[in-house]
């Protein structure tokens, strides 16, 4: 289990929680406002990364 960042899109609360990709997707609830609009802030590749300059 790794700790991942989550962001509540209702109350703007940012927090870390245990996360396993095996159990994904699972129901997320913001610990502060109990909303389910919780976004997993996954590490995304930057736009254009990997492309060669022409």
């Amino acid at each position: 289990m790794a700790l991942e960042n989550f962001h509540c899109l209702r109350c703007n609360h940012k927090y870390k929680a245990e996360f396993s990709k095996k159990e994904w997707p699972r129901e997320l609830t913001c610990p502060k406002c109990k909303s389910n609009s919780v976004r997993w802030l996954k590490k995304r590749a930057a736009k254009g990364a990997g492309k060669k300059d022409s």
């Binding site: 899109l9 209702r10 129901e27 609009s37």
Partner: peptide, 14 residues
């Protein structure tokens, strides 16, 4: 987010 629109505009609720 990539388009520059706040993701908060779309909410999810169970």
């Amino acid at each position: 987010e990539d388009l520059g629109i706040r993701p908060e505009r779309v909410q999810l609720e169970w």
